[in-house]
Design a protein around this nucleic acid. Structure first.
Lengths: 145, 145
DNA sequence: GTGCGTGCAAAGTCTTTGCAAACCG
DNA sequence: CGGTTTGCAAAGACTTTGCACGCAC
């Protein structure tokens, strides 16, 4: 938390109690991919006066500071996760078309492809997002088709 | 177009003039990733009476039939492209953080990772989406930082 | 104290839905 | 003809914004 606090202050933003509570929610949460409303519901427990707009504003601020990473799983709302800030530590998301469960998977295929893309397109990668859609073990078992 | 028409009829859906015009827009368009409104603007030229809701309904229908593929580039609206229906032909999107331009890139790394994921997670992949964020040649050149 | 940050409510954007009329097969 | 599909407008879901008050520094 102190690292996060420092990063916010370094950018001349204020470390308000609301911002702290919202960050804490991510540090504490078992739920890895919270939507704005998920976050709102968590922080309301600690500070009932907090507003949904404040949550949205904080999530956007934190994303711009790379404290959080904004995700999209195609369910009509943005989701966020703590950003570990290291490309090679990145993970991918396995999104089950049956139950919607999102699992994480990690495997370094990037170094190879990164070079290839730089050479062929002159495109300098700073981040990426990889989502696999399919059926998880349980749904595969129960699939009719 | 006849293949598409067949696929629609095979599923007992009607091949209406509106649906035809919308599909034609994708076949003709140079723009590879049209939003619902982009499509609406194109088809209005041909059929001024067409409604935006019809476009949305058609895009959803076509996606469910795998004629189109629904994409999300994080700009707050869904985008669509013709689906080539072959996992190994799939391409990735290079999204420039400078100018927003979306380029396509193709490289088969999937077969390898697919096996790995099936073994380790019991997850059966049917589709995936890979997006790289970074800076394209031009923006890299002009980047201050 | 000053100006950034907040809460609230209203507005905005994209998308979906209800319904009567139109149309495909 | 009958059930789909359409166009329109209204509603819905998520997110952003305007503004007066409050708080971090």
């Amino acid at each position: 938390m102190n690292t996060l606090k420092k990063k916010i202050r370094d950018h001349k933003y204020k470390f308000t109690s609301q911002r702290q509570v919202i960050l804490q929610a991510f540090l504490d949460s078992q739920e890895n991919h919270m939507s704005a409303e998920d976050v709102f519901n968590v922080v309301k427990q600690i500070d009932p006066d907090i507003g949904l707009a404040t949550v949205y504003r904080a999530l956007e601020l934190f994303s711009s500071l790379d404290l959080l990473k904004k995700l999209d799983f195609g369910d009509g709302r943005s989701r966020y996760e703590i950003n570990d800030n290291n490309l090679s530590h990145s993970h991918y998301h396995l999104i089950c078309l049956g139950c919607g469960r999102v699992t994480e998977f990690s495997y370094d295929f990037l170094s190879e492809i990164k070079d290839k893309i730089r050479k062929e397109n002159g495109f300098e990668i700073v981040d990426y997002q990889l989502k696999f859609y399919g059926y998880c073990k349980d749904c595969e078992k129960n699939k009719i088709q």
